[in-house]
Structures are given as structure tokens and as C-alpha cells.
């Protein structure tokens, strides 16, 4: 995908007649061709290799939001509005053997959650370094802690944890927060406000435009 026109065509075509030209123009405005904000941040201000097309990071940002990110945020908002605990996360570890052009993409955290240090089922074992193994252990323990206590933090009260990761807060709508799993630095918290207006545009039209 190399032109804005191609991107726009796909934005419209994907929704089988529900997405108007006007709406597509709003999407184009909310999802600019801006490498400083678009996904695959590990590439910085670079575009991926030519075979991906110049609009790749832009379209990946939009379609990732449509298919996954927007509804994740909406689900968290609904749970929080009902005073129910929900723990939100963003996984940002590039597994070994992954394509840098695609960055931290679909499926990436499964091997970490499953603590698959052997790499069973993978061409390249997805993690091997000390820092990545620590993220995997931290994630598996957090998942187990949720299974035991419905709270991914609880296990840290034991002596098995001596890390520096912040407490993972319950999502709330006045201060929405994601826990970000990272292996290049200590995992951290981020406000869940990125692409706020863009994602709101999707979430305000979930049923009528996106049939979800």
C-alpha cells in the first residue's frame, strides 16, 4: 500500500458498504501518515522495507485499532463504569525471531504467558535472554496470581518477587492506565489515552459502521 487513496479504498471496502466517503475522510484525518505516532515505533521515523509499502505503518495503526485496540479500550471502560475490576495491559516485547517490520504483533505474548522457554512450536525460541525470560516469568506469575486471587499483583507479596515493576492498577475511567510489558527497561505504567480521538471515533460507531 503506497498511496493515501489505496488506504482510503481499503478502509471503505473492509466494512462492506457501511463506511461512507465522509467517514473515511474523518479516518484519514485521525490516522495521519505520521511516523512519530504510528505503530512499529521501534523503526523510529523510518518506513519499513519497500515491499510493505509506504502506507504500511499508517494502515497497521488503523486496522490494529479497529480489530483489537479500540474494543480492548471500550471493554475496559465498560467494566470500570460498572465498578468491576479490569486489568489492562499492552505487550511491547519483540520476541526473538520476529520481523522488525511488524514489531510486536499478533500472537507475540502467547509464548511468554505460557512460559514456553523451550520454544516448543516455534521456529526460533521466542525468548532466551535474561531480561526477556524475566518478563515471561513475571507475566506467567501475574496470570497465575489472577487465577488464584483475581488480582495479578497478589503474588508479589511473597518472597519470590524482588523486582521494580509498579503495582498494576485496576482500570478506572478518570485515570485509565495500562501495564506495559517491556524487556528493554523495567515494565511500566502508561495512561491509556494514546490516539484518544481516533479510537473514540471508532468506538462511537462500533455497531453502525463496524458491525461489532
Amino acid at each position: 500500500m503506497n498511496t493515501e487513496e489505496e488506504f482510503k479504498k481499503l478502509v471503505i471496502a473492509r466494512e462492506s458498504g457501511r463506511l461512507s466517503e465522509d467517514f473515511a475522510n474523518k479516518i484519514l484525518a485521525e490516522y495521519p501518515d505520521d511516523l512519530s505516532v504510528n505503530v512499529v515505533q521501534s523503526l523510529g521515523n523510518q518506513r519499513p522495507s519497500a515491499s510493505y509499502g509506504t502506507q504500511f505503518r499508517r494502515s497497521a495503526t488503523y486496522f490494529g485499532d479497529v480489530s483489537i485496540i479500540a474494543s480492548r479500550r471500550k471493554t475496559c471502560e465498560v467494566w470500570a463504569a460498572n465498578n468491576l475490576p479490569v486489568y489492562s495491559y499492552r505487550f511491547d516485547v519483540l520476541p526473538d525471531g520476529a520481523d522488525v517490520n511488524m514489531a510486536v504483533t499478533h500472537f507475540a505474548e502467547v509464548s511468554f504467558v505460557f512460559n514456553n522457554y523451550v520454544g516448543v512450536g516455534y521456529r526460533v525460541p521466542p525468548f532466551a535472554s535474561k531480561s526477556m525470560t524475566e518478563v515471561a516469568n513475571f507475566m506467567t506469575n501475574s496470570w497465575l496470581s489472577y487465577v488464584y486471587h483475581l488480582d495479578p499483583n497478589e503474588w508479589r507479596k511473597t518472597i519470590k518477587w524482588s523486582g521494580l515493576e509498579p503495582q498494576w492498577p485496576v482500570y478506572n475511567n478518570s485515570n485509565p492506565t495500562n501495564f506495559v510489558f517491556d524487556s528493554n527497561r523495567t515494565s511500566y505504567l502508561e495512561p491509556d489515552v494514546f490516539r484518544k480521538e481516533a479510537i473514540k471515533l471508532i468506538n462511537d460507531n462500533t455497531l453502525s459502521v463496524y458491525a461489532r
Binding site: 475490576p85 489492562s88 499492552r90
Partner: peptide
């Protein structure tokens, strides 16, 4: 409000769909 009211965990990746494009 038609969902089971229980604590959940919900997450995603930084660039979740790029391989489809």
C-alpha cells in the same frame, strides 16, 4: 450490561494486526 460481572484481564500488543496487511 448483559455480561457476567466478574473481574477480568484484557490486553493487546503494540501493533496487533500488521501481519494481515
Amino acid at each position: 450490561g448483559e455480561f457476567i460481572h466478574m473481574p477480568i484481564m484484557s490486553g493487546g500488543k503494540s501493533s496487533p494486526i500488521s501481519e494481515l496487511l
